[in-house]
Design a protein around this nucleic acid. Structure first.
Lengths: 153, 153
DNA sequence: TCACATTTAATTGTTCGCAATTGAATCTGC
DNA sequence: GCAGATTCAATTGCGAACAATTAAATGTGA
């Protein structure tokens, strides 16, 4: 019987950790996205914010945070960088002065067309069928939501 | 037919992105781990380094980086923090003075016993069977490796 | 109305993560 | 043996990520 380690250590072995699989896959995605997003002048988290805004414009920071699971400590400086790049505008809501609404500039809207090439390249890099990816995505989202549910308690 | 958006936009919709599923799941894991690792005095990436060292001691920085897909820019300061916490020692290899070998202190070894509680808690939080998690882990690792293969070229 | 709680962004400080560069040690071919 | 290439860790600079706090606006109950 080939036994590299004691069985009691199995739960602590790196290659048995699903969290490390997810963690390292996220970094791998980041590295594949990097050259694609460089052409758009975006980082990956900035790209996610743009995806939100391309779906619906004029969104409060709070709502962007809820969709991406990020807080203002991350979003405020990120949005300022997008503003400095002339892709979004930040304006205080007139109805509720606490809210800052994020809206696309014409350049921000135009970038959407250039971005359409990105998902195709990612699909190619994944070397996977669309249906496989969709199935995996649904499983991962379900796991994520269960984890987030535990945190809420 | 309920159609919230144009079909041409589907590839750009946030909820259709497997990368976002992975990205947000990684953050969800991080948040679940946080209170558990706080008790050990570790951050999540520090925990990963300790997992590597608990499997095999006296490992060069390079090899830790290969296992975790991290480079020296990330690892050097992280390892210095682990050293400051008296969990590891950093010593130049005598055979090859370029290498820095990382070894566990007695405290670092002792922490392994406290860490055994962590995977159990994560399993409970995931609300999943072990076999489901293993299957998902294998799929995600396979995807990660395909992505990394694309980067290598 | 008015004290008090809640909501929303912004700010501060710490830790990752990586690209790019540096400097020292080692290897290679000649 | 030695010049040039390679390897390895450290460093620098920038952009996340998040906890904790702050400040302003809004909501609520007596």
């Amino acid at each position: 019987m080939a036994r590299k380690h004691s069985a009691a250590d199995a739960p602590l072995r790196l290659d048995n950790q699903i969290c490390f699989a997810v963690y390292s896959a996220a970094h791998a995605f980041n590295r594949v996205y990097k050259p694609l997003l460089d052409r758009l002048g975006l980082t990956y988290p900035q790209y996610l914010v743009m995806l939100v805004l391309w779906e619906r414009d004029d969104v409060p920071v709070k709502e962007i945070g809820e969709r991406l699971f990020l807080d203002s400590g991350t979003l405020t400086p990120l949005l300022k960088r997008l503003e400095a790049a002339h892709l979004v505008k930040r304006t205080r809501s007139r109805e509720d002065e606490r809210q800052v609404l994020i809206s696309l500039t014409p350049q921000g809207q135009a970038l959407k067309e250039k971005a359409r090439a990105v998902p195709q390249s990612i699909l190619a890099a994944s070397n996977c069928s669309v249906s496989e990816l969709v199935a995996m995505k649904d499983e991962i989202v379900a796991l994520r939501d269960r984890l987030n549910a535990v945190i809420e308690e």
